[in-house]
């Protein structure tokens, strides 16, 4: 088997030579697969890395001390790009997007431009006198809320996301439910995202969703629409934790050994383009975290006149094993 080191720095940190996996691009080739774009249907906008939380699984190492933030000039360029590109969905993420002062403009200008607009929320960044109005704004523009909620076990959730986050999240979910989010017939979508609270792969999405529906309803009277179960990507703060806890080697090997060729067809990078806070384009949010530009070329959003062409190559690296492990990450 043709193997290579994941990266020289990890080899030295681990102090051993056994951290090897086959490069992702070779694994694709071995299965006769190529990773190219289909029609790009989703524009993902990362408005910056400022966050009120410091989650241990964050692939960006986002937190209160980060200064990366999308400025109004870039916001206007993103809006202009969306106006000329006709995306099916627009996905706003961060950091905590609620902390970006331009979020209101983004939502107001972008929501008429795509049938579906969604905001990734950590559920605690809504709180605070200056931000509670954001929930009304989301409702007014029918923005789907995609909320991080890793576990209904308080100690597991707080150990990943910080002390007190679980109770605050429950309280925000109740508020969203009271506004109509996650309720049948309201057309206000509330989805949950559950990441494993450690160095292990996620459980089956369908089974987890059923169980979360039962437990959240039974214990807190909370309802939601869909649950997405995502594996943690070994980048940023999560990679640091893997290193410090001695789990990096086994985790990477597990991701690589769980490669599912059938997951490649549905990978999100085939239909999504991600724009960073400073306006550069990437094939996905994880490549953004890794600094891998879209198709391997540094292109600013102001240089683009429409979505990337179908058939364009997608930049890959070994963290891509996260999205092809088991059922995949779509």
């Amino acid at each position: 088997m043709n193997c290579e080191q994941i990266s020289p720095e990890n080899k030295s940190v681990l102090g051993k030579d056994s951290l090897t996996v086959e490069p992702f691009r070779l694994t694709l080739a071995k299965h006769g697969l190529t990773l190219e774009r289909q029609r790009t249907a989703t524009l993902q906008i990362n408005v910056g890395l400022l966050c009120n939380q410091r989650c241990r699984h964050c692939h960006f190492s986002a937190g209160p001390d980060r200064r990366e933030s999308m400025r109004s000039e870039t916001v206007n360029e993103v809006i202009a790009y969306a106006q000329g590109s006709h995306f099916d969905a627009i996905d706003i993420t961060g950091g905590a997007p609620e902390l970006n002062p331009n979020l209101v403009t983004l939502i107001e200008k972008l929501s008429p431009l795509a049938p579906r607009i969604m905001l990734r929320s950590n559920l605690t960044a809504f709180n605070g006198a200056t931000r509670e109005h954001l929930m009304d704004l989301l409702k007014e523009h029918r923005v789907a809320v995609v909320a991080s909620f890793p576990s209904f076990n308080e100690s597991q959730a707080d150990s990943q996301r910080g002390g007190g986050v679980f109770q605050e999240s429950i309280s925000t979910l109740k508020k969203l439910n009271a506004m109509g989010y996650g309720q049948d017939g309201s057309r206000l979508e509330l989805d949950l995202v559950s990441n494993p609270t450690g160095a292990f792969l996620p459980s089956s999405q369908a089974q987890t969703e059923t169980r979360f529906h039962q437990v959240l309803e039974q214990k807190w009277g909370i309802s939601f629409n869909n649950l997405f179960n995502f594996a943690n990507v070994p980048l940023g703060r999560f990679r640091q934790w893997l290193l410090q806890s001695g789990n990096l080697e086994k985790y990477i090997e597990k991701l690589a050994s769980s490669f599912n060729p059938c997951a490649v067809e549905g990978l999100m990078c085939r239909t999504l383009v991600s724009v960073s806070w400073d306006g550069y384009l990437y094939d996905c949010d994880f490549n953004l975290a890794k600094g891998l530009f879209m198709g391997g070329r540094k292109i600013h959003i102001s240089e683009m006149s429409g979505p990337p062409e179908p058939g364009s190559p997608i930049a890959v690296a070994d963290h891509c094993y996260t999205c092809t492990a088991g059922a995949g990450f779509t």
């Binding site: 076990n153 100690s155 597991q156 450690g198 292990f200 996620p202 459980s203 089956s204 089974q207 987890t208």
Partner: peptide, 12 residues
Amino acid sequence: TQACLEKGSNLA
């Protein structure tokens, strides 16, 4: 232990 975590059980 690993299987339980991966199938969605918690430590409690």
